[in-house]
Simulated scan of single mutants.
Amino acid sequence: MNQNRSVSGQAQGVPPRIFSVVQESDVQVDPRPAPLTNMRLALQTLMDCMSAGRDTPRLGAFFGYSGYGKTVAAGFAAARTNAFYVCAKSVWTQRTLLEAIASELGITKMARTAPAILAQVTEHLTIFPRPLVIDEMDFLVKRQAVEIIRDIHDATSIAIMMIGEEDLPAKLKEWERFDNRIRVSTAAQPASDEDTLKLRDHYCLSARIADDLALRFKQACRGCTRRIVTNLIEADAIARDERQANADLAWWGSRPIMNGDLQPRRPQGGAA
């Protein structure tokens, strides 16, 4: 007898089939508008996959450069759609991935083997279908764990959105059977002026950071959300310490902007 199945055939650790199977289309999506561009794009990518039929591809990719706010956007999309969310780590194996997904699904008693855990995961998602968001997908590509995502996709009706770096779509081309199941690929965008001012209003609570200074940060950081936020927080702290009520570009002056560029070495004095 299979040690990983009960007499009724139910995978261990998966809730019993008491109610009829629900449909992913029954998932309620929060209708409020997304605050930032990449939050909106990630949510739309996931919703496009959710709207697909069972017999059509339901994989989505949201990709872009580091610092564009993809993880925040992924978390936002997951929260708005009540999706399961898993963030991969660099040391994960195929079994670790399955265990992480099973844990996120609430499966408390995992089977002993990876194939049996996969069966638990797919059965749970068949009975209780909710979207799945997988962040740091590049790690799973590197660890040859891509086919597990395809197994889950093919055995269920759920939408799956993968988050990764700029070259994620190119990496996935290596797996043709996986690549042709991707319904939509969406590129994360650099922060817009509107995004920057919204970030300013969210993070700068001690002083009034003027539009011209916030937008200068955006320009110098080439739209990288993480670096924009770093500079906004720094400006807010300096303005607070200096008791500067209105911190504008003229006040900032020649202070450096942290944008990742190497700062020129200052001469030490004296001839070389």
Rank of each mutant, 00 (worst) to 15 (best):
C204M: 07
M39A: 11
A102V: 00
K142F: 12
G64N: 01
D195T: 00
Y203M: 01
R150T: 06
R95L: 12
R216V: 07
S103E: 12
D211P: 04
D30Q: 13
L262Y: 13
V22H: 13
L213I: 06
A114L: 08
V29I: 15
T126G: 11
G67Q: 03
C224G: 09
H124N: 11
N231R: 02
I127K: 12
A111D: 09
F62M: 01
M39S: 03
F128N: 14
L118M: 14
S66V: 13
P256E: 06
S192M: 02
W92D: 08
Q12E: 13
Q10S: 05
A272S: 14
D211V: 07
P131A: 04
C204E: 07
D151K: 12
D26M: 12
R80H: 10
M161T: 10
T71N: 11
Y203R: 06
I149M: 01
R255M: 05
S157A: 15
A83I: 09
S254R: 10
D135A: 09
G53A: 10
V121K: 00
L249C: 00
F139I: 02
P256W: 11
A272F: 15
R183C: 08
Q268K: 15
D241K: 12
G253P: 06
R95G: 02
G67L: 05
W92M: 14
N38R: 02
E24P: 15
Y68L: 15
F128H: 14
R54W: 13
Y65M: 12
F19G: 07
R143P: 06
V21C: 08
D212M: 05
M1G: 15
W251R: 03
R266I: 14
L199N: 04
M39N: 10
K142M: 10
W251H: 09
V133M: 02
G106T: 02
M110C: 03
R227V: 05
A73T: 08
N4L: 01
E194C: 05
N82C: 09
P115L: 08
L215H: 04
L97C: 03
T45R: 09
G269M: 04
D26G: 10
I233T: 13
R32E: 09
Q263D: 06
P264T: 07
Q28P: 01
T71H: 03
I117K: 06
I209E: 07
E123Q: 04
F62E: 03
L105W: 03
A207K: 10
F76T: 09
D151H: 11
N82F: 07
Q244F: 05
T56Q: 14
E99H: 11
S206L: 14
N38K: 02
E165S: 11
Q28N: 11
F63G: 02
E104K: 03
E194K: 08
A239H: 01
F19C: 10
D241I: 10
L132A: 05
L105G: 06
A159N: 05
G75H: 12
M162Y: 05
F62V: 01
D26T: 13
F139T: 03
A111S: 14
E104T: 10
F19M: 13
R222M: 08
V72D: 13
P129Q: 01
L172Y: 08
E99P: 00
V21L: 11
C224M: 12
Q28K: 15
I257T: 07
A237R: 15
Q44K: 13
S51C: 10
I117Q: 06
A34K: 00
I238C: 02
T230W: 04
L59A: 03
